[in-house]
């Protein structure tokens, strides 16, 4: 069963079409990353699932439950850590958690145990009698995760959970989220930190200007990028060694590579640096060249992300430019 399933999901705010027919499926138990530039529609998408935004069209289901017709079942399955802090100012944080669990039907004594456990997990149990307002920025982020997990959700939705936190805390939060996912909780994560998606997600969906432009695993995405191998040979060269000539003008096709000389070094661009490197080395060796140094750089997911959203932006903006 799909944890999240949307078909042609649309949302319009006045003249602005925030979602332009998003069809997306997140499998049960999956760790799914939703990436996209600011204003791409990521938060709108999430808010439709939890009932904070009314959809203008299309379908959205959580574990098969329609988010409007079966809103109680759908919401019961979700634990949400929103991007903005939206915590009850009147009560100490432990009580806020007890209330949240109570809204999900958890009896008070069990809710109290769950609240303590959640606070211990995120490491702020000793602050349990403090109000949210008085917590430090990092503790506030920890608390947002505690509130999302206190209802023991089947689907954990995290909207920029590590925005503005230090490296140590980010790693702590990743560890907790990963553990929950390993225990069977489906995770939907939006993030601006591409590294976060690369490290954590089984699949990522790229949303741009209200449309899904890509759904793939981080590895698949990265394999589409171009890797660069720089080879320093003994003595400067001014032309690509003839051993590699067959590939030079052919361009970087699916299995091939493209070589050129730059500052006296041989530069090879390829889809797969690992496979290409061996072939290049063999060809150079056969031709009697001495290799002094090899430097290899892989395309980052960040570069792919920028490329994909830029290409999509060019396509969607083109008609306006032509008009």
């Amino acid at each position: 069963m799909s944890a999240i399933e949307t078909e042609d999901l649309r949302k319009r705010y006045g003249d602005l079409q925030a979602l332009k027919g998003v069809s997306l499926e997140v499998d049960e138990g999956e760790f799914f990353g939703l990436l996209g530039p600011n204003g791409a529609g990521k938060t709108t998408f999430i808010n439709i699932l939890v009932g904070l935004v009314k959809k203008s069209g299309g379908e959205a289901r959580v574990f098969g439950y329609d988010v409007e017709d079966d809103y109680r079942e759908a919401r019961d399955a979700i634990g949400l850590a929103p991007q903005e802090f939206n915590v009850d100012r009147f009560f100490p944080i432990r009580e806020v958690l007890v209330h949240k669990a109570g809204y999900h039907g958890v009896p008070k004594d069990v809710a109290e145990e769950r609240a303590d456990e959640a606070l211990r997990t995120v490491g702020i149990y000793d602050k349990r009698d403090t109000r949210f307002h008085w917590l430090s920025g990092g503790m506030k982020r920890r608390f947002m995760l505690a509130r999302a997990m206190v209802t023991d959700p089947d689907l954990l939705i995290l909207d920029e959970p590590t925005a503005g936190v230090d490296v140590q805390l980010r790693h702590d939060l990743w560890e907790i989220i990963t553990r929950m996912n390993e225990e069977g909780t489906t995770v939907l994560l939006t993030t601006h930190y591409i590294e976060e998606a690369e490290r954590l997600c089984d699949r990522v969906g790229i949303l741009d200007e209200g449309e899904v432009v890509e759904v793939s695993s981080p590895d698949e995405l990265m394999s589409r990028g171009t890797d660069t191998v720089r080879v320093t040979l003994a003595g400067e060269i001014d032309a690509v060694p003839s051993a590699l000539n067959g590939k030079v003008n052919g361009g970087a096709d699916a299995d091939g590579y493209e070589a050129r000389v730059e500052d006296g070094e041989l530069v090879v661009e390829t889809r797969n640096a690992g496979a290409t490197l061996a072939e290049v080395m063999r060809a150079l060796d056969d031709a009697g060249h001495d290799v002094v140094d090899v430097e290899m750089s892989r395309t980052s997911l960040e570069e792919i992300f920028v490329e994909v959203t830029r290409d999509h932006g060019d396509v969607t903006r083109a008609p306006e430019g032509d008009a």
């Binding site: 939890v50 009932g51 904070l52 809103y71 109680r72 079942e73 919401r75 019961d76 979700i78 949400l80 929103p82 903005e84 939206n86 915590v87 009850d88 100012r89 806020v96 209330h99 949240k100 809204y103 999900h104 039907g105 509130r147």
Partner: peptide, 17 residues
């Protein structure tokens, strides 16, 4: 007040009817 500070969302996103 809950709307102004958005914490009413903890209630409205819950499975309460």
């Amino acid at each position: 007040h809950g709307r102004w500070n958005e914490y009413i969302q903890a209630t409205t996103t819950s499975p309460l009817s």
